[in-house]
Amino acid sequence: MNAQATASHIGTTAPASNLLLAVDGVTVDFDGFKALNGFSLTLDRGTLRVLIGPNGAGKSTLCDTIIGRVRATSGRVIFKGQDITHLPEHEIVRRGVCRKFQTPGVLPGLSVVDNLMIAARRDRRWWCSFQRGAAAEEGARVAEILETTGLADRGRVPAGTLAHGEKQWLEIGMVVATRADLLLLDEPTAGMGPAETSQTAALIRRLVGQHTVLVIDHDMSFLEQLDARVTVMHQGQFLKEGSVAAIRGDPDVAAVYLGRAKEDGHHG
């Protein structure tokens, strides 16, 4: 319903110099159902953006499309000025995009440290896996991430035995360990209590600047703690963009989303 608004929005706010990611009119068509419908979005380097929208709005599909898990039917994804729409997934990741999945995607059989070491590895070509040892820099980075994610004393345990919140932090840590410029965090606070949610918000705010971060989440208190610009999606299209406060007060957004989110907020 807001195709024109989307187009004009892209046209007016895209300073090319600082641009990291441009999703340009992407449509994803699942057998007639348009999960994304001419959606556009730009992200500048070092910024934090929150993406909200009711279930089925296309938020996860957008992340899937950026990372290559789902292919755009039409439109382009431009990252660092290059078209990555049709690259293999691992190639997209090597260029500096990494994603945290909705359900924690840690490797359960490996220790926490091994999970992070795999993520921190600079050279991910297969024949390099026969080399012994790791760069000191990679070890230092893993040690640092163990500290920032509060997993320092859990380094030796299998990741599968971590508590749910710890798994979420470990996966955020893995995504950070790849040194990706763009971090896609899909529901990073799913299943977390209020205290853990606050810690996660603080963790994400520390990442901004060094990384560009796109967060998908439903939890309004979490969004307020992140205090970032919010993009609202609805039915695969752009609906609104603004500060958390502006979005909260927006009647269009309330109509499609916030009313429901407020009710859900008590449970989430």
Binding site: H90, C98, V106, L107, L110, M117, I118, W126, A134
Partner: peptide, 26 residues
């Protein structure tokens, strides 16, 4: 070796490994 670790990692979560920038096929 690290190859062994990655092989087990691919067994346990091929997609996670792919989205950490590794090509699981080789």
């Amino acid at each position: 070796s690290r190859y062994g670790t990655l092989l087990r990692a691919i067994r346990d979560g091929e997609n996670r490994i792919r989205f950490l920038g590794y090509d699981p096929t080789p």
